[in-house]
Write a protein that binds this DNA or RNA. Structure first.
Length: 424
RNA sequence: GGAGAGAUGACCGAGAGGCCGAAGGUGCUCGCCUGCUAAGCGAGUGUACGGAUUAAACCCGUACCGAGGGUUCGAAUCCCUCUCUCUCCGCCA
């Protein structure tokens, strides 16, 4: 959520940023709704003020044995007026809130202006495409041939976009989770958390998934709970409605969770393999930062995520998302795109974002400064990394002509010491 | 799932229709005192929204005693619903 004062005082700034994002939202409607809302507040609070003073008079009169009938009559009629205005206020606030909650964040000045992913800027490139003396296969062929990924049976058990990992496949997935957690805890100073995998509506609203993106979520029947689409939701909400101490910041959490996404609107897209699943594993990095240092923290977060691929020695590039491709809550986002030789594409494997105070305002995550004043923190997060997509990247980049898969050195201690997944 | 108890400020804890944004204590901040430390003395110490001002502070108003609704001229206090915590029983990984 944007600062209501910013919208009130500088609606043109908001309008410009919306335009850059290619968003059609009419800021003027919001400005009008805000004025209406404040109008009603002013009126109703004046009446409440009178109500309180009159009420005090009654108390004093009663105490001294006087007659308060006149005041009681006055209060009765005030009460009716207040009740009516309260209804009006509720409507006005609901109208205003429904508008302000769907306004996306303002992109940072350094974000390239553009319409879609074709306008994203490559920020860095690490390593090179590996050279094969045979035709590298996509991971789904490798996985089925080695009998470590079973898509058919997963479809039988549940449906499409699910995967049954078997033997070395399951082992590699688990190894990657543990390797990444250890890397971020031991080398990068994050604190590990293992949060709930379902959350309530307030949490989903706090990080911005609701109210706008409910169709992307799996909702439980009989409970107002949702399966998390990312660990960002439970972890960022750890400090919802809390006031942190300045000295505690920055706070850095790493969490492994499965993620559940409805993938509505992705019909027919990436239907093969591990790329786009309804359930996938992810290790997520979350930071709570001081406003002044949040962009340094973003660069650091990106390096922490990159470090995973560097350790695995897999080629990738980093792109800075343009205004048109930026997520709803984000001010600036870097995507890490891993090279997949079996598919001959770069594929997003991590998305690292600074939300500035957008989530913090919704979720009321604040901190107390040294001078006693209270301010909103900045929140950041990034995948470090998406596990399924890392598994597929390892498989495709480390495959051999005989169909076996080399185990990256850093992963071997996590994979019972084996050096390769043997051919069938 | 059954029975009971509870939820008040950073924390502990009073409060039982109007004098309560809320006693008292602890903690914290500032000042005094003290050779240092400890102790002692004094003052201060919630958040949000709206207004005023606008660089900010100060100021004015409103709301908030788990959440929502109700009774009443008036609710932290009475009633209802819900959520969460604790104890006992049952069940269970």
């Amino acid at each position: 959520m944007l600062d209501p004062k910013l919208i009130r005082d500088n609606p043109q700034i908001v309008a410009e940023s919306l335009k850059k994002r290619g968003n059609e939202f009419d800021v003027q409607r919001l400005v009008v709704a805000d004025e209406k809302r404040r109008d009603v507040i002013k009126t109703v609070e004046a009446l409440k003020s009178e109500k309180n003073t009159t009420s005090d008079q009654i108390a004093k009169l009663k105490k001294s044995g006087g007659d308060a009938q006149e005041q009681i009559e006055r209060l009765r009629s005030l009460g009716k007026q207040i009740e009516e205005l309260n209804r009006e206020l509720k409507t006005a606030e609901a109208e205003w809130e429904s508008l302000i909650m769907i306004v996306p964040n303002i992109p940072h000045q350094t974000v390239p202006v553009g319409g879609g992913d074709e306008d994203n800027e490559v920020a860095k490139v690490w390593g090179e495409k590996p050279v094969f003396d045979f035709q590298p296969l996509p991971h789904w062929d490798l996985g089925e041939r080695l009998d470590i990924l079973d898509f058919k049976r997963a479809a039988k058990i549940t449906g499409s976009r699910f995967t049954l990992y078997k033997s070395y496949g399951a082992l590699m997935e688990r190894a990657l989770i543990n390797f990444m957690l250890d890397l971020h805890v031991l080398r990068h100073g994050y604190t590990e958390v293992l949060p709930p995998f379902m959350v309530n509506r307030d949490s989903m609203t706090g990080t911005g998934q609701l109210p706008k993106f409910e169709e992307e979520l799996f909702k439980l029947q009989g409970f107002d709970y949702f399966l998390i689409p990312t660990a960002e939701v439970p972890v960022t909400n750890i400090y919802r409605e809390e006031i942190l101490k300045e000295a505690e910041l920055p706070i850095k959490f790493v969490a492994y969770t499965p993620c559940f996404r409805a993938e509505a609107g992705a019909h027919g897209k990436d239907t093969r393999g591990l790329t786009r699943q309804h359930q996938f594993n992810k290790v997520e990095l979350v930071k709570f930062s001081l406003p002044d240092t949040s962009y340094d923290e973003l660069e650091g977060l990106l390096l922490d995520a990159e470090d995973v691929l560097k350790s695995l020695k897999i080629h990738y590039r980093v792109s800075c998302l343009c205004t048109g491709d930026l997520g709803f809550s984000s001010s600036k986002t870097y995507d890490i795109e891993v090279w997949l030789p079996g598919q001959d594409v770069y594929r997003e494997i991590s998305s690292c974002s600074n939300f500035e105070d957008f989530q913090a305002r919704r979720a009321k995550i604040r901190y107390r400064k040294a001078n006693g004043k209270i301010d909103l923190v900045h929140t950041l997060n990034g995948s470090g990394l998406a596990i399924g997509r890392t598994t597929m990247a390892v498989m495709e980049n480390y495959q051999n002509a005989d169909g076996s898969i080399e185990v990256p050195e850093v992963l071997r201690p996590y994979m019972q010491g084996i050096t390769r997944i043997p051919p069938v």
